[in-house]
Design a protein around this nucleic acid. Structure first.
Length: 506
DNA sequence: TTAGGGTTAG
């Protein structure tokens, strides 16, 4: 990988000077030269060079050439300059499937999913033809949004096109369905595939893992071992180990890790696999064992690994190890608010309020800000997004009324607001008000209003779900006899009858 | 000559 980037950069520099020399020698570069050179300027490191090439392109009057323009906008998109990319796209006198796909993919790859979807729909209305790259790109955006209805529509379009047998597209569909919360559709696509690549298997395994269905992970993995067409790779093991961890299959996970250690498949465990084992041990409450494991592994622990163990310490209320781990984590990630929040929750669970206050002060001192939490819910074709205490929704009065009604009803059933989830230094009444305004609760209340009984309420959150909101959703599912599916930044929580598929560990 | 393919531990 390192070599590839090195070569690419080298090639970019070479091509650049080659072009410059040609110009100086009186041989002007043409559309072929520019389109090629730009593909070597991708990413942040090639951006300066790319911009220089752009000015040459303008001087040579090639900016509106379709191939040159497509590479140019792709170069900007890959350097995280989506506005520049869009403006190149808008200036193109004619568009084709490649230029349209490049800009849609640009938005999707930067996580600007709504913009990607909007543009896809707009260009389709204008008569854009899609090919498999276009569909794969829009499916990525739909996965990010968890927009199941639109995902199914795109699937239907794919089925009506002559692209439906593309393995790549089917892999995208598996991923889209699983990220949109529908494992059964994902499995349908998987089962219907005449041939599968290792990616197809991995996508399905990751799906089961994220949904916490450990048994299916193991069953599918065993099925994969019997399939002579395909061999597991490093990602397969990651998917299986993580699936075991999320699904609570500790022994199975450890066995599979040992199989890797004994090198049965020629795939050496990487730091990520060690990370999965830390998670596996931590989840099982073996926090000290996990710490020893970290100290003995042949890699320097990353923030992800310490983060996993800190999460385990929070769940199992191990303040001693938690404090140690948090400080290792603060050394690596001093500005990640999530870590401070978990340590604060850990202190709160142990009733160490002075330490909770200290963490809050520390966050202020270091000006660590929490990334704003955001939840959304799809109703038909529309995505409704909520921020904390969001009053921008046209049906806000109804929504806030529903949250209050909900809260009162589940309190009767035993729900107690977990005030330790509020880091602001305010009185208890205020804390409860802040908690009730959490974006997940607004989205859940809106789902309860808008989604007919009998259908699951599917909510997506951009961060890890908060402890109080998780508890709230559990009580809601029982009191209103509703199935709740919550996707957070980590995994799915399927909540039914007051019980969550994550086993309260996340 | 242009987009480019899907899966990755907290």
């Amino acid at each position: 990988m390192q070599i590839t980037i090195g070569l690419k950069t080298l090639l970019a520099v070479f091509s650049y000077f080659h072009v410059q020399n040609k110009i100086m020698a009186g041989t002007p570069p043409n559309e072929f030269t520019f389109a090629t050179i730009l593909t070597c300027c991708s990413g942040a490191c090639g951006f300066d060079r790319g911009r220089q090439v752009h000015s040459l392109i303008i001087k040579s009057n090639f900016e509106s050439h379709i191939f040159v323009g497509s590479s140019l906008l792709d170069m900007y998109a890959k350097a995280d300059r989506i506005h520049e990319a869009r403006s190149v796209f808008e200036r193109l006198p004619e568009r084709d499937v490649v230029s349209c796909t490049a800009i849609i993919a640009g938005y999707a790859q930067l996580g600007l999913d709504e913009e990607a979807l909007e543009l896809f729909c707009h260009l389709q209305r204008e008569g854009m033809k899609s090919n498999y790259v276009t569909y794969a790109s829009v499916l990525t955006a739909l996965s990010g949004l968890a927009a199941l209805d639109q995902g199914r529509q795109v699937h239907n379009r794919v089925l009506r096109s002559d692209l439906s047998s593309y393995v790549v597209l089917q892999n995208s569909l598996i991923d889209m369905y699983s990220k949109c919360g529908s494992l059964s559709y994902a499995r349908k696509v998987f089962d219907g595939m005449p041939e599968r690549t290792v990616i197809s298997w991995n996508a399905m395994l990751v799906g089961y893992g994220k949904h916490g269905i450990g048994r299916e992970v193991i069953e599918l993995y065993e099925l994969m071992r019997k399939d002579k067409q395909v061999k597991p790779d490093s990602v397969t093991f990651m998917a299986v180990l993580s699936g075991c961890s999320h699904g609570g299959l500790v022994t199975e996970g450890l066995n599979i890790f040992n199989e890797m250690i004994t090198d049965q498949d020629g795939i050496e465990p990487e730091i990520e696999h060690y990370g999965c084992v830390v998670d596996l041990l931590g989840r099982a409450g073996e926090v000290e064992k996990a710490l020893t494991f970290i100290e003995q592994m042949p890699f320097k622990p990353t923030a992800a690994i310490w983060g996993s163990l800190l999460g385990a310490c929070r769940v199992h209320a191990n303040v001693l190890v938690g404090e140690y781990v948090a400080h290792r984590l603060f050394e690596i990630e001093p500005h990640n608010a999530g870590n401070y929040v978990i340590l604060s929750n850990l202190y709160a669970s142990a009733g160490r309020w002075a330490d909770v206050t200290y963490i809050r002060q520390l966050m202020t001192e270091k000006s660590v800000a929490k990334e704003p939490g955001r939840s959304w819910i799809n109703l038909g074709q529309t995505i409704h997004t909520f921020h904390a205490s969001d009053r921008s929704h046209p049906r806000r009065e109804e929504i806030f009324e529903k949250v209050r009604e909900l809260s009162a009803k589940i309190k009767e059933a035993g729900y107690v607001p977990d005030l330790s989830c509020v880091l602001h230094d305010v009185d208890e009444e205020q804390k409860e008000k802040i908690l009730l305004g959490h974006s997940e609760k607004l989205a859940l209340a809106f789902g309860l209003i808008g989604i007919p009984h009998g259908l699951p309420i599917r909510v997506v959150k951009n961060l890890r779900i908060c402890v109080d909101c998780h508890n709230f959703a559990k009580f809601l599912s029982k009191a209103y006899r509703r199935e709740v599916s919550l996707r957070d930044s980590n995994r799915f929580h399927h909540i039914l009858g007051g019980i969550c598929s994550c086993g309260d560990y996340w």
